[in-house]
Structures are given as structure tokens and as C-alpha cells.
Simulated assay, not measured.
Amino acid sequence: MSEDNGAKIRYRIRHLTEYRYSNNVAVCQNQVRMQPVSGGNVTCERTELKIAPEPTSRDEHVDYFGNRVITFSIEAIHKSLAVDVESVVAVAANPTDDKTQSPNWESLLATSPDQMRHPKIDEHRFGSPRITPAETFRQYAESSFTPQREIVDAALDLTRRIHDEFKYDTTATTVETTTKEAFSLRAGVCQDFAHVEIACLRSMGLAARYVSGYLRTLPPPGKERLVGADESHAWVEVYAGDEIGWLGLDPTNACLVGTDHIPVCIGRDYDDVSPMRGVVLGGGTNTLKVSVDVEPIADV
């Protein structure tokens, strides 16, 4: 994980998505959420999205959560689609660590939905398309959230428990697996672990949101980094009070979020931040190839 020392780390990120179809596609329409935006500890220096074939129409907007969204359509016969995003970002170290003094978690509870103090925060206390707070999740979380325990300590303990008690297994779940199913399986991938932790936090009455982005991976000692071997990643943010703000937690890696984590989109759950979604007319069967490369670069 990161060795946060107050400095920034600059990255060049390339995310290439390629579809190949067995039959002709007459029309396709897609939305893309793969471009970072500046905010928090991240500065997006530049970002460019290339699409092949050339779209018939292309529009851009910022969604409710502040994510950059490109919508495009291709109204011409094609048998392949490539979406290539390249960005340069700078990620600053987060001064928060597991020794940071923070408020106790009970002080962060909303009194009621009718007395929201910060609507943009408090809306993340409630259910969303993929996450429904429930007593099962509350019971799992409560051993971490003991009375008067500081929010950083309690949330990090929950993060580590999910890492220790759930198995990382790419075959156990799919993108459609529900949070309840992943919790019962005690297995899955980063998306599942993030959903489970958010469900636990919201079931305790806390505000928690889903973050999608990238994680720099380090090769074994003496080995070269593999281009395209980095991955899209997902983690969690819990609101930890006005002084700390949103605290990043990575249950897949049992850690606080650091400079190895590069956020791209935030939302209530995966449905709000899916990197690419769309519909096609025709196409038959398709094959999908995704390549992500996260490269630290020097200042110039």
C-alpha cells in the first residue's frame, strides 16, 4: 500500500475497452464513466476519450454525484467497438491514519430523515438500488461499533474483518450478484466487499458511499511491471465528521485508502458508477477485452 508522506503521486492511466461482435451491429448507444474529475485529494490534469468507430453523436454532462459522463451513439454498421480513455492525475496523500483522533461514531448519526443536517451526506444513509440496510448487516457491524468508539477505529476494524472473513474469489459472484447473496457466501470481489461494507455502515445509521477507480499494483521485487495488469477497483467512503470528511476504506486490501488509490466516480452503489453501459441492435454474440494500465510518472 501507499507510503503517504505528504507528497503527491502523478499517474498516467489508460483504460481500453474493446468489444468484437459475431454479427453486424446496426446501432449502439452507450454511457461512459471513466474520466476522473478534480476534487478532494485528486487533481485531474488532463483526460481524453477516443471512440472507434467515430460516433454519430456524442454528448457530455456531469451527473448528480459530480461524475463526468459521456453519452454516445453509433448509427452505422460495425462489428467492433473500442473505447480508449487516457488520463493524467495527481493524488495527494491523505493525512488520516488509524491513529488519527476522530469523533465517536454515535455523534455522526442522523437524528431522523426529517432533520437532515447535510442533505448531500445524509442521503447516503439510506437504501439504494443494490443495497438495503438490514438487521443482519447491523448485527455483523456492531462488534466493531462498540459504544463511544472513534469512527476511524471502528470503521477500519470493520474493513479488516471483512477482509479476513470473506474470501476473494473471482468465480463466486457476478456483476449481478446481490449484496445479500455476497454476504451469505462470504466471498466475492471488490465490488461485493464494498457493497457489504456500505450495507453494514448504513445499517448502523452512518453515511457511506461507493467509489470506483483504479489501484496501482506493485510487481514482486526484481520484476518489471506488466503493462495492462492493473485493474479497475472499488472501495468505500464513510462520512467521519466535518474535520475529516469522507474517509476512504478498502475492504479488499484491509486498509485506509492512500495514494495508490485513484478515484474516478462516486455514487450510492455500483449502479451509479458503472464504467460503461449501453444497448446494441444486432451484434450476435460478443467478446470483451479490457486493459487497464496505471503508471506513476515524474513531474515535468
Score class of each variant (00 low, 15 high):
Gln101Trp: 07
Ser102Gln: 04
Ser102Arg: 02
Ser102His: 03
Pro103Thr: 12
Trp105Arg: 00
Trp105Asp: 02
Glu106Leu: 05
Ser107Met: 09
Ser107Ala: 13
Pro113Ala: 10
Pro113Ser: 10
Met116Gln: 14
Met116Lys: 13
Arg117Ile: 13
Pro119Phe: 10
Asp122Glu: 01
Glu123Arg: 15
Glu123Leu: 15
Glu123Ser: 13
His124Lys: 00
His124Thr: 00
Arg125Val: 01
Arg125Ile: 01
Arg125Tyr: 01
Phe126Met: 11
Phe126Asn: 09
Thr132Met: 14
Pro133Asp: 01
Ala134Gln: 10
Glu135Arg: 12
Thr136Trp: 11
Thr136Asp: 15
Phe137Asp: 02
Arg138Val: 03
Glu142Asn: 12
Ser144Pro: 03
Ser144Gln: 02
Thr146His: 09
Pro147Glu: 05
Arg149Asp: 08
Arg149Met: 10
Arg149Asn: 08
Val152Gln: 11
Asp153Met: 15
Ala155Gly: 12
Leu156Asp: 04
Leu156Ala: 07
Asp157Gly: 11
Leu158Ala: 06
Leu158Ile: 00
Leu158Glu: 00
Arg161Phe: 09
Ile162Tyr: 03
His163Phe: 14
Asp164Phe: 10
Glu165Val: 06
Phe166Trp: 11
Lys167Cys: 15
Thr170Pro: 09
Thr171Ala: 13
Glu176Gln: 14
Thr178Arg: 06
Thr179Ser: 12
Lys180Trp: 14
Glu181Tyr: 03
Glu181Cys: 04
Ala182Met: 07
Phe183Pro: 08
Phe183Glu: 08
Phe183Trp: 07
Leu185His: 06
Ala187Glu: 07
Gly188Asn: 00
Cys190Lys: 04
Gln191Asp: 01
Ala194Gln: 06
His195Ser: 12
Glu197Phe: 08
Ile198Ala: 11
Ala199Val: 07
Ala199Cys: 10
Leu201Thr: 01
Ser203Leu: 07
Ser203Asn: 08
Ser203Ala: 12
Met204Gly: 00
Met204Val: 00
Met204Lys: 00
Ala207Met: 04
Val211Cys: 02
Ser212Asn: 09
Gly213Asn: 11
Gly213Thr: 09
Leu215Pro: 03
Arg216Gly: 12
Arg216Phe: 12
Thr217Glu: 14
Leu218Arg: 14
Pro219Glu: 08
Gly222His: 04
Gly222Thr: 03
Glu224Ile: 13
Glu224Gly: 14
Glu224Pro: 15
Glu224Lys: 15
Val227Met: 13
Ala229Cys: 05
Ala229Lys: 04
Glu231Cys: 15
Ser232Trp: 06
Ser232Thr: 13
His233Pro: 07
His233Met: 05
Trp235Asn: 09
Trp235Val: 08
Val238Pro: 05
Tyr239Cys: 06
Ala240Trp: 00
Ala240Leu: 02
